[in-house]
Nucleic acid binder design. Structure first.
Lengths: 228, 228
DNA sequence: ACAAAAGTGTTGCGTCTACACCCATGG
DNA sequence: CCATGGGTGTAGACGCAACACTTTTGT
């Protein structure tokens, strides 16, 4: 069925789009390649080991760059256009991870000059097809925000409804109605009121936490989760 | 970042879940491996060539087995569990294709004893993790049926509303209300009435065709496309 | 007392669901 | 004329969008 020459294997890598929300903006973690060409900002990633599961490879990248584990991680898509890497063919399995920025300590690798959160709306030029991968990841994230409770990965354990709403607004890039948002979210049963209150200069907000920190599809009622 | 030994590349293959609807049932195309172990029913697939795009590789498999081209084809997910293939590590990029069974002429490959449509609800034991791949593909298909017009790939150019409904019912595995189905589908503007009529023993049905044979997300109104 | 953020209900509109009978044709 | 599948409308329930003021706290 296939020609013999075709059986020569290609290197396989994983690249991880790590998102977080900082100050009302969606940010992505990028590393500046400083040692090997092509230089410039890239997604963190690495080759998949011989005996390594694909998810493991992505988890390892995530742990090496951010120090976090046990966060939301999802396989997105596999990019394999033969010329996507100018140095030779590499097939890349893209992952998306969602983290609470407060939990992250950025750790520079030895091949990299820098590692930084950059706002998705104002990205510099990126190496390879990484811009395309991020665009795809963002679309998927928007979808997931509307139909699932993935948002829990972007927030600390205790949070106010306003903080929750701000995360949605940052990612959907539109304002939501406060009363409708609260009614809708509370009716899902995904979050529980706690006895804690926020502290600060103004009226303290009731803090909530998630009933279950695992991915749930919102089927109540069915239909788009958030309209306006 | 990665250990040297990890750079040894693994073979990469594509496996294609080819669906069609035959007689009110969703079917999948399987080949019976007759030459090389492990013997038994498998998804059609092949290794990705050195200079071959991933989509191309899937298209090639599809063409070799069914003779069709220009049908709906979508990358699904990449399976890479190190022991998924007992002969050694193979990373497999799964695709889903949708075809109109009438357009297909099954073509036996030289490594295969047989090639056959089998109903998804009563599959025999499959080799590797192919059962899992089909289960995943089916979930994705159900989703796409509800939110997009992918159904056009499963039907001939001209079709009646009843035929259209039967395809939905086969895949969603539930009955739909005839009046609601018609109203809903017609209101999307995705199909056009034609002057043709079906022939047969009873009252002739008006035949329709698709306004555009490209994938459209149904955003009218937003929300689940088909309830009951 | 004032600034700032938290919190709270109602109404109108549109979409979805459930449901039963007549129509056109071939045999 | 009968069997078979094609084709049609309405009413009630429910979810969604729009909208503005009061409360609580720290300073």
């Amino acid at each position: 069925m296939r020609r013999e020459e075709d059986f020569i294997p290609s290197p396989v890598a994983t690249d991880v789009v790590i998102f977080t929300v900082i100050g009302n903006e969606l940010n992505v973690l990028l590393v500046k390649r400083g040692k090997f060409a092509p230089l410039g900002w890239s997604l963190p990633g690495g080759f998949v080991g011989q005996r390594e599961d694909l998810d493991e490879s992505a988890v390892k990248t995530l742990r090496e760059k951010t120090g976090v584990r046990n966060v939301y991680l999802e396989q997105l898509y596999t990019f394999g256009e033969p010329k996507r890497d100018p140095r030779g063919r590499v097939i890349s399995i893209a992952y998306m991870a969602l983290v609470d920025a407060q939990m992250v300590k950025l750790e520079k690798g030895k091949d990299t000059e820098g590692i930084k959160w950059l706002p998705v709306k104002k990205l510099p030029q990126l190496t390879f097809d990484h811009r395309q991968i991020i665009d795809y990841a963002k679309k998927r994230l928007i979808w997931k925000m509307e139909y699932t409770n993935v948002v829990f990965s972007l927030l600390p354990t205790y949070f106010s409804l306003t903080e929750l709403q701000k995360v949605y607004e940052a990612i959907l890039e539109r304002d939501l109605d406060k009363r409708n948002f609260r009614r809708k979210f509370l009716s899902t049963g995904l979050i529980k009121e706690t006895k804690k209150k926020s502290q600060g200069a103004h009226r303290p907000a009731t803090l909530y936490n998630f009933a279950e920190k695992r991915l749930e599809y919102i089927t109540n009622p069915f239909g788009q989760f958030l309209k306006k």
